[in-house]
Amino acid sequence: MSEENVYRLCKKLCSAEIADTENSDFFVVFISNDRKQIPLWHQKASHRADGIILWDYHVICVQKKENEKSSQVWDLDSTLPFPSPLASYVAETFRPSFQLFSEYRRFYRIVHAPVFLRYFASDRRHMKDSDGNWNAQPPTYDPIVAEDGAVHNLNEYIEIHSADVVPAVEADLVNTVKRERLGLVISENQLEEFFALPTCAT
């Protein structure tokens, strides 16, 4: 449900004027990989002291404020400060120095928040078993329907593969993210590089 929580968070932050709805400095980041197995630390759902858990996918917000060097991460499932500076969030949550087997390497789909709010849709079918029964109690609020009438496209966002990673982070990629419905996919070592681009807030 991290995708719906992030959707509602973006709406709330925009209504509170923490972010502008159209010229937003918010980006939605989907995290997954080919095998749908990504380790993250400091997660509330973990039963371990270090907070590690293996998600199939996870969704966070990253805010790149104009005239500020440090981006902020809004992760509703994290035990870290809310929000957290991007650099410390990456260090604590992804543990880049921790050597992972290749099948656990994380990749990141970055979508501009205004685009996400217009086009994302979920009827929560992924929360049901093969017989149509709920695996967990669904939220009481209505499912998300996109402006174009789509009722479910979550799979398009969480299908994140190593083959889709852009070869290099360049300034014009920011415009791509702001234009494309599904944004773009980057590798972990490109994440901070992308949000360091000065044009992220333009």
Rank of each mutant, 00 (worst) to 15 (best):
M1S: 04
S2V: 01
E4K: 00
Y7W: 04
C10S: 09
K12T: 10
L13S: 00
C14Y: 00
E17H: 12
I18W: 02
A19C: 13
F27S: 02
N33G: 13
D34V: 13
Q43F: 10
R48N: 08
D50F: 14
D50V: 09
D50N: 10
G51D: 13
I52F: 07
I52L: 08
I53L: 12
D56W: 05
D56Y: 05
I60C: 03
C61Q: 05
C61S: 15
V62W: 08
V62Q: 04
K64L: 04
K64C: 09
K65T: 11
Q72I: 02
V73P: 03
L76Y: 07
P81W: 06
P83C: 10
S84K: 03
A87K: 10
S88N: 11
V90C: 12
A91V: 03
E92D: 09
E92L: 06
T93C: 06
S97L: 09
F101E: 09
R105Y: 10
R105G: 07
Y108I: 09
R109C: 01
F116T: 08
L117K: 00
R118F: 13
Y119P: 06
A121V: 06
D123F: 01
D123Q: 00
R125I: 12
H126C: 12
K128Q: 13
D129K: 04
Q137R: 11
Q137C: 07
T140Q: 08
Y141V: 10
D142A: 11
I144K: 00
V145E: 08
E147K: 12
V151K: 11
V151G: 02
H152L: 12
H152A: 06
N153R: 04
N153Q: 06
N153L: 06
N155D: 14
E156Y: 02
Y157G: 08
I160M: 04
A163M: 09
D164E: 13
D164M: 10
D164H: 10
V165Y: 05
A171C: 14
D172C: 10
L173V: 11
V174K: 06
V174R: 04
E180V: 04
R181W: 02
L182Q: 01
L182V: 00
G183E: 01
L184H: 05
V185G: 02
V185C: 00
E188P: 10
N189H: 09
L191R: 05
A196W: 12
T199D: 13
T199M: 15
T199G: 05
C200T: 15
T202P: 01
T202L: 07
T202C: 06
